[in-house]
């Protein structure tokens, strides 16, 4: 079977983020870039399926600038078979991402799309759901366990939901988005890194796909979270309740 894994290049979550003076984007100089951590979990899951089911092909897909090659190479070094990079300099919203994926599914014909439940830069959490909708495929989001049927016609996916776990049985082809506890991604091994250089990394200009990627939203303003200030001691439960009500306004 063929698994398509979507990979986004995002700032390292450990990077200290600074806003540009206009306040609608972040300063990207000196930022370290990584694979979106949830996408990395999706890659790992695809590789584990491949290790169990011989003949599985894992194809990576990223949309963005040429620099996203780095993240794709890392995924190839982990063990994916080949990669596709859809080149564009513009900001691509979740709906545009979903349309690009839909288009490539037409040529690649995967049986399974694995992706992170959300990207840690804009935290939209909707590309996966939109792809499923556009393709008319079943979806299982926030997966914490994926068990593929022996006949590869369906999968059982456990999801983390409020108050517990839910297990869905879905037929393939389907879209599955990965949550944090699905697995622990491997490091690329040295032989893996050596082999990655020879694997195919195909680039397709976004314009060639003929997909409507016009933005529907505009970022007006970004704000950093308020600076943490020191704690404060209160004298009694009554005072605590009062402060929570009057000042923090949480009750």
């Amino acid at each position: 079977m063929k698994i398509l894994v979507c990979v986004k290049r995002v700032p390292d979550p450990e990077t200290v983020i600074k806003l540009t003076p206009e306040g609608a984007s972040i300063v990207t100089d000196n930022v370290k870039w990584v694979i979106n951590p949830f996408d990395e979990i999706a890659i790992e899951e695809a590789l584990r399926i491949k290790e169990k089911a011989a003949g599985t092909e894992v194809v990576l897909l990223s949309i963005g600038q040429k620099t996203a090659q780095e993240q794709l190479r890392t995924g190839l070094a982990m063990g994916a078979d080949r990669a596709i990079l859809v080149l564009t300099d513009q900001v691509v919203e979740p709906l545009a991402v979903a349309r690009v994926i839909e288009k490539l599914v037409g040529t690649e014909k995967p049986e399974l799309i694995l992706m992170g439940k959300q990207a840690i830069d804009d935290d939209s959490n909707c590309a996966g759901q939109m792809v499923a909708e556009l393709l008319g495929w079943p979806q299982a989001t926030f997966a914490s366990k994926v068990v593929l049927g022996g006949d590869q016609k369906g999968a059982q996916v456990t999801r983390e939901v409020d108050g517990g776990l839910e297990t869905l049985a879905i037929p393939l082809p389907a879209v599955v988005t990965a949550d944090l506890r699905l697995n622990e991604p491997r490091y690329a091994s040295l032989p893996g890194i050596m082999k990655a250089r020879k694997k195919e990394l195909k680039e397709i200009p976004l314009a060639e796909l003929g997909v409507d990627v016009a933005p529907r939203t505009r970022i007006v303003k970004l704000e950093t979270p308020p600076k943490r200030t020191g704690g404060r001691k209160v004298g009694s439960v009554q005072e605590l309740v009062q402060v929570l009500h009057d000042e923090a306004k949480v009750i």
Binding site: E70, Y187, A188, L190, A196, R197
Partner: peptide, 15 residues
């Protein structure tokens, strides 16, 4: 090279 950087990043993460 790009490959060296990939090796470096991977090791740095482990370390």
């Amino acid at each position: 090279s790009e490959q060296h950087e990939l090796i470096r990043q991977t090791f740095r993460r482990f370390v």
